[in-house]
Nucleic acid binder design. Sequence first.
DNA 1: GGGTTGACT
Length: 691
Amino acid sequence: MAFWKPGSERPRILDDEEGGVLFYNAAPASSSGYGHASMEKQRQRLPVFKYRTAILYLVETHATTIVVGETGSGKTTQIPQYLKEAGWAEGGRVIGCTQPRRLAVQSVASRVAEEMGVKLGEEVGYTIRFEDVTTAGVTSIKFLTDGVLLREMMDDPLLMKYSVIMVDEAHERSLSTDILLGLLKKVQKRRPELRVVISSATIEAKTMADFFRGRKRRGSDNDVQGPNTEPAILSVEGRGFNVHVHYLEEPVSDYVRATVSTILSINERERMGDILVFLTGQDDIEAATQMLNDETHHNARKSSGLIILPLYSGLPRGDQDLIFSPTPRGKRKVVLSTNIAETSLTLEGIVYVVDSGFSKQRFYNPVTDIENLVVAPISKASARQRAGRAGRVRPGKCYRLYTEEYFLNEMATEGIPEMQRTNLVSCVIQLKALGIDNILGFDWPASPSPEAMIRALEILYSLGILDDDAKLTSPIGFQVAEIPLDPMVAKMIISSHELGCSEEIITIAAVLSIQSIWASVWGSQKQLDEAKLRFAAAEGDHVTFLNVYKGFLQSGKSSQWCQRNFVNYHAMKKVIEVRDQLKRVALRLGLSLKSCDRDLQVLRKAVTAGFFANACRLEPYSHNGMYKTVRTSQEVYIHPSSVLFRVNPKWIIYHALVSTDRQYARNVISIEPSWLTEIAPHFYNSKERAL
DNA sequence: GGGTTGACT
């Protein structure tokens, strides 16, 4: 197989002084001769085109190639096509390209299908959860979320049908990307012919190269058949416009206030162009909106022509769509956003960015097993990403609400990988299902803390998913691994089979996997609370969800019904979709679906079987509804959004904790304490806890 | 008395 154009000049190799990492400079590109003329011209104008020969040469000769490229370089759409043109899809093999997000998978796949002049789902296809737009034996370029590829590995651990896997947006260091990278390194040892292309937006490629560098074997690598195991690095320039960065001269204490005055001064002094503002959450965004609106009343000149638009994931769909409507002449859009606009969503027409320097980040404490949301400083990589959003249409400006000294000397280069900030139960079970026994010795791009690993093993052991040797139990462990949900939810589903309430429990599981089924409407919290009362069940939120689901079905899945009842229609559609998938999985696992009708006790027992570790007891004589967890005596309060808020039954089980100034238990169900010793005697008796 | 963001055959 010769993949770089025969007769063309080999690209030049520049050896890096440290460890022989390869850097390449651009070599003259050769035309591919595919597609129709205008599309072909467009493709050739992309920065990545100059590197076509170099990329193909590197991929052929190296097991791993790392492509560093800013947004707009065209790497995501072009590299898979180059690989196909060079023959990597011959013999029925597939070129896979992973993305962290579903939307990106869909849009990149349709773009590539268009460029190649083929129908989406034939030569070019994509797979995301609930949607497989591929044709076996025909699809040769396949885009997929990294989560889907991990699931595929459960059936095909060596990824035999793929010749190349390109992992895109690797710099985001999402949990599934990191798991995938760790597994790919392992697969390469068994399948030296598999090529891995890692695409990343930051120059921190060396960390990745260090990770993929095969351990030096005795003797020369040349003795071994196959590609060079030394990872190659190639850098491709982006195609954004220059963004001029401004820093503060002195640090500020109130970044929301600083944001507002920066917006006003841009409006006064700078020429037309929309403003994108990065804040940390809904609270900040509402506060800033309020301050800007006050300004319109008191100082109309400064704020004239501003259209203030909030943007965060919890915002109803219709309000989010406002962001994309074109700015009227003489007006200026100000989008106040969380970090959803940093990666997940691209806004056109932004010329000015205001960066508060903060975002909300999740941190996991393995000792308490609690995930916290904390406002924390962003990394340099995030700051660059945010600034880049100003340079998409013309040269832009970015106002950083911190000092240059802080940026240079104090800001971390990269964010902390999700792997090190999260609960690892799902991750551990995925690896176990792939037959990786030595979890603690697994080679990660970023090792999680041993405490977090051990805590995950303990939890899985207590659920009966792992045995004394930390192997998956049969059948429960293997069944849990097949269910694409949190292991505690999966355990609840499996237990519901014996208890005869799986019809109801899979509905509950589907609802719990959705962020919220309630419609969030500005300023009508009271009405939502009242609407909730129509469905409220004395047993708690889980049973309330069942009532909503029943109502939704009885209405014929009507969107008007949802509107009347403050239920989020899109969320309910998603519930139906997830529920259908769970039903299919359950049937395949041999779990027949049974309904318990009005017997709510078995239902609550099934919840207990999955979530016994989250049991709490109301503090005796508590006047403010304080609970303590049975396991660790943590102080916990029922979340105000729960139907059991202020009801305060003596014993509860929560689905999740939300940590703000207090620990709030979200999605709560009441239980009988005797069930804990009945259902989880190993957990509650052996620890001699006074119930 | 209250929700950063992604993802799953």
